[in-house]
Simulated scan of single mutants.
Amino acid sequence: MLSSSCIPSALQAAQFSDWQLGAQIRQLSFWTQKQQPAPPSLILVSLGQRPQQEGFRKALYSLQAIFPSQSQLILDLGYLPHPQALSFVLEQPLVQNSCLLLLDPEEQAFPTLTKQLNSKASSIIDQNLIYQEAQSSYLNQLQINGNFAFLGYQSHYCPKNSLISLQEAGAWTQRLGLLQSQLSEIEPSFRESQQLLFRLNSLAQNGFLNPQSPEPNGWTNKEACQIMSYAGLSDNIQLLCLQNFRADYQASPLAAKLLAQMCWYFWSAFKERLAEGIPPLHELKRYALQLPQDNLPLSFYQSLRSGRWWFSLDKEEENARLLACSEKDYLLACKGQISERIFWSARQL
């Protein structure tokens, strides 16, 4: 059984102003109450020991409040020093009905998450995709299919055979340089995913996050926060795991602040979720195209509510299966060009 001792000791006695996030986050003591409050919408939990990670929570709790003061929607489950306890946490109805943000500095969660990654649509942000080329690769433990999106890989770290094998298995892949040229292209993948695994060793020049092997190229700090915003806006993502980073925030306060701000951007965007899902046809504006060279019936749909885009390769509009895409996919189709996303989707049919 979890207990309130999991909560950082330095935060139990801390006083936070109404404008600070710490005033809105409930702690684990509610588990011991006879009458439990309404379930939270957001849950935070960390794997690892408490002393090294208190700096992160101090930085997080001191940030600007997100929700109205009367609406406390965030629950902090504290720390899980034993990764085996994660299975118990994930099985709890409270967690299953909320959105979970999991901090996993040393990849201890992966054995537990493998089953979930294999059974649900998932996005993985990683610079290094080695599949069937090395026995130690975590990708070998996954049942790769069309439910996986691998985002932000760097070509010089990825064997060509690995990329070919992933793509032949049905996975969607997008290169780092392509996404950095237009970061909004990452959003459709999040809309189709229920889980997101963000490996933070793919951030550039962040020796404070990855002191043993800092990267010269990769995501910038600003891009990392933007990515978290896109993930927060997704109606589908219910589990976000941040992996591969330095957990000793006392020795590296800059790492604590970056992780705190990334979480803040995710939660802030979560507050703006529209719960739109895939809108009904009467809430969509349809653009029908016919590409004669491919004999491909292609329709694009734009939400009248959010402005987001979907497409369909079905001939009949009433039973069309709508798949997430971007405006760029539509504009390319208007020029008679099939984007990689639509080409990949056509192969999955």
Rank of each mutant, 00 (worst) to 15 (best):
E185V: 09
Q35P: 00
S46N: 10
L304Y: 04
S155M: 08
Q205W: 00
H82F: 10
A65F: 05
S312T: 10
R175Y: 04
Y79K: 00
A324M: 06
L179W: 13
N97D: 10
L75A: 00
L196F: 13
L239V: 02
I164C: 01
R50H: 05
S119G: 00
W264K: 02
L197K: 11
Q174I: 02
S71W: 11
D126K: 11
M1C: 14
N147G: 11
L163K: 09
Q180K: 09
S119D: 00
Q132A: 07
S345W: 02
F88R: 05
K328C: 01
N236S: 15
L2I: 02
F30A: 03
Q49C: 12
S202E: 03
Q141D: 15
S306V: 12
E223N: 14
Q64T: 14
R50V: 09
R273Y: 14
R341D: 05
L239T: 01
Q154G: 03
H282I: 10
K222E: 13
S345M: 09
Q52R: 15
E185N: 15
W219P: 08
H156S: 11
D248K: 01
F150N: 00
L349M: 15
A121I: 01
S137W: 09
D18M: 05
R321W: 15
A255S: 13
K34Y: 13
L21C: 07
P279R: 05
T114L: 14
Q36C: 06
Y249I: 04
S229N: 13
I66L: 12
L313T: 01
Q132F: 04
S345Y: 04
I7H: 15
W309V: 07
L28M: 03
L60P: 02
A171S: 07
A65E: 00
W310A: 02
F266Y: 14
D126T: 03
L80K: 06
W344N: 02
G146S: 15
N236T: 10
E318A: 15
E91G: 02
S98M: 07
L200G: 00
Y138Q: 08
S46D: 12
P211N: 07
F198S: 10
Y61L: 11
G232Y: 10
K335F: 02
L80F: 04
L101W: 05
S9W: 13
E168K: 15
K120P: 08
S184V: 11
L176C: 09
S312F: 11
W219R: 06
E283N: 08
G22A: 11
A169L: 09
F245I: 02
I227R: 08
S303V: 01
I227C: 11
L100E: 11
S41W: 08
L44T: 01
Y230R: 15
M228V: 12
C225M: 15
Y301T: 00
S306H: 14
T220H: 07
C325M: 07
S181P: 01
L142I: 08
I43E: 07
L73M: 13
S193V: 09
Q27R: 13
R286T: 13
I342E: 00
Q72G: 07
L203I: 08
